[in-house]
Design a protein around this nucleic acid. Structure first.
Lengths: 210, 210
DNA sequence: CTCGGTCGAGAACGAGCGTTCTCCGATAGC
DNA sequence: GCTATCGGAGAACGCTCGTTCTCGACCGAG
């Protein structure tokens, strides 16, 4: 199965869309900007996605998959489950330092269109829910209490927002430090050192997210 | 000094602007929507603010003052300085439950216009910096270590974002719990019980925020 | 060679919006 | 009472943008 012409066109279109939508916002970017960046005739663009909204949807869907995969890949290279929880924040720091970083595409998209576009709200919720589920898996795998997961998520979301607005990566470190304190405190609250939790209290490995 | 006609007009204009800009976003709202909501002739609107950008600026400036005042007022009613730190998150919860809550106006505005409007970036930074300074004051007044403040800020920002996207107030409680754990952990790290810190370590009252 | 169909390039259309302009009625001064 | 000024209501202008339409070049089939 060769990369049929329409599939490479689709890829070029989504590449251009992501580049433009992420860096300049959704409403600011016109279909003509995308057409010229993708080097595709407008007809072709509309043949692939019948409206701008559908194109935005496709952009966010592809970015969601890639973004979560990149996070998970970097985090999973850390062998110790409890260190993995903190590695998440290191990975966020890497992301913040990337040139062109401009915050979370879903937080930004929600701010831009959340009030007027139900699909945008759904996408933002789906992405954030998937992220929260992923963090919950990390927390469970580390044998930490469930209640820790949403707290770590708040730190991560806050770090994304602050890093974007101030244009600095410092929030990653701050969030990591806070997370470490919460992890230590939660682990201590068990009043049992690591590795001595009773096995019936909940599975600690092999969490599938969602 | 009677409320000169132009001042009541300005108030009505800013009221309408805030209502519309906050609930529907900035780009989505047209000057005509504002004009009709304010019940003012367009000429009058442009006499008060020569461009839409200036009107947006004025809207954010007034909201900034009010928002921070409301937070500070609610928080300051808590007598104990360490409890005040946590009361901040209770106050956020009240805000999240207000009808029409749609997240932080500056986070949303940054998501919408941060890429294309330098004034919007400046306003977002100024507001977030002022909030961070305020939290730093609370932390200092409670005799807690400086490094705690940005961590609490991240929790607050994350809570605002999550509450907005999911339309629930749960993040306030989660953030409060996390903040309590961080406060306890930070206070414990002093390895001194409350009230026994050496008086030379830093002023603990009367912090001016800036 | 000719014809039919496909596809690319860009013009065109219709709506929305920020901003300005026109007109008209009311009012104050003489 | 008459005129000059002001302010209100909304039309108009110029531009952008999402979407559609037109036209002409290319290409395989007969």
């Amino acid at each position: 199965m060769p990369p049929s012409d329409t599939e490479t066109a689709r890829a070029r279109l989504l590449d251009a869309s992501e580049e433009l939508f992420y860096s300049r916002g959704i409403q600011t970017v016109g279909m003509d900007d995308i057409r010229s960046a993708a080097g595709l005739p407008l007809k072709r663009v509309y043949a692939l996605y019948p409206t701008k909204s559908r194109l935005v949807e496709a952009y966010l869907e592809r970015r969601d998959i890639r973004w979560r995969a990149r996070i998970a890949e970097a985090v999973s290279s850390e062998p110790d489950p409890r260190e993995r929880v903190l590695a998440l924040f290191d990975r966020l720091g890497d992301w913040f330092r990337e040139p062109g970083f401009r915050g979370c595409a879903w937080i930004n998209g929600f701010g831009e269109l959340g009030a007027v576009s139900e699909p945008m709200v759904r996408q933002a919720r789906a992405h954030k829910q998937a992220f929260a589920d992923y963090v919950a898996g990390l927390v469970a795998d580390a044998g930490l209490p469930d209640s820790l997961a949403p707290q770590l998520v708040l730190l991560a979301e806050g770090a994304m927002v602050s890093a974007a607005i101030f244009g600095t990566d410092a929030p990653a470190r701050q969030a990591r430090d806070a997370a470490a304190a919460l992890v230590a405190s939660a682990a201590g609250a068990d009043s049992r050192p690591r590795g001595f939790r009773s096995p019936g209290g909940g599975d600690t490995v092999g969490h599938e997210h969602r």
